[in-house]
């Protein structure tokens, strides 16, 4: 007889449920069964009405973020074997985001914050394509490479207590992404991004809880990125101190 494992899945269908509730499913267990496999098994074999996001199954696309036993995790990178003998596994939509349906979160707030910091190479003058690529040494790339690993999965936002209390806070992902471009030798847009880092909703809303870096599935370490952003914003404040005191600086 096949071993079974109980998965408790959060359900929420806005047209018929007043509030989210929990439904238990029995899933055939195997050593290599991920949470995503279990959710797909439930949807394919047991209840086709279950809604969850997924795509790549290999921690690249960042779409299968859920709370597993109250911890933000990628469903594809989390295996049921690690939860054996610890009772039923509970899966629910990411914290700190509105729930659209079942395990699907409305991450439009995160997407807006990512766009705010202009996460692309900004140049004072764009070189014509014919001149070739902007060159960079491996050392120059190393300065931002770790922060460039972000897959925008939103786990750090689900982990961040400050974002939970104030969704206007740009949050760990967007601030790490801002740092990724500010540290890129090919980029000339740091001055444009500084106004966002300097703001109340920028780096200064962070109290360095550090849970974002713990849950990041790509080891981006957004908490370190924000702290480096604080140093940059601090220097920017000192450089502009005269204008700030004269009331001529509001960014």
């Amino acid at each position: 007889m096949t071993d079974k494992v109980t998965v408790r899945v959060q359900r929420y269908r806005p047209e018929e449920d007043a509030a989210p509730w929990e439904q238990s499913f029995e899933v055939p267990y195997s050593e290599d069964l991920s949470i995503l496999d279990a959710l797909n098994q439930i949807k394919d074999q047991q209840d086709p009405t279950l809604s969850h996001r997924w795509s790549c199954r290999m921690a690249i696309c960042g779409s299968c973020g859920v709370m597993v036993n109250n911890e933000p995790r990628l469903a594809c990178k989390t295996f049921l074997r690690d939860y054996r003998d610890r009772g039923p596994v509970q899966v629910r939509a990411l914290d700190n985001f509105p729930i659209e349906r079942d395990l699907v979160s409305d991450i439009s707030g995160l997407v807006e914050h990512l766009e705010t910091v202009q996460p692309w190479l900004i140049r004072a003058r764009e070189s014509p394509v014919g001149e070739g690529a902007y060159l960079q040494t491996p050392e120059q790339m190393q300065r931002y490479a770790a922060f460039g690993q972000c897959i925008n999965c939103g786990l750090c936002y689900a982990a961040c207590p400050q974002f939970g209390r104030d969704p206007a806070f740009l949050g760990p992902g967007a601030l790490a992404l801002a740092q990724r471009y500010n540290l890129d030798s090919r980029d000339e847009g740091a001055a444009q991004r500084m106004q966002w880092l300097n703001a109340d909703v920028g780096v200064w809303s962070c109290t360095f809880v550090g849970y974002c870096s713990e849950v990041c599935p790509k080891d981006v370490d957004p908490a370190a990125a924000i702290n480096r952003g604080k140093v940059a914003s601090d220097l920017n404040y000192a450089v502009n101190l005269f204008n700030i005191l004269r009331g001529k600086d509001n960014a």
Partner: peptide, 15 residues
Amino acid sequence: MRRSHEPIAWSLFGA
């Protein structure tokens, strides 16, 4: 965007 004056407190904190 309003600039935060937190750098003053944070500089003293860091020092």
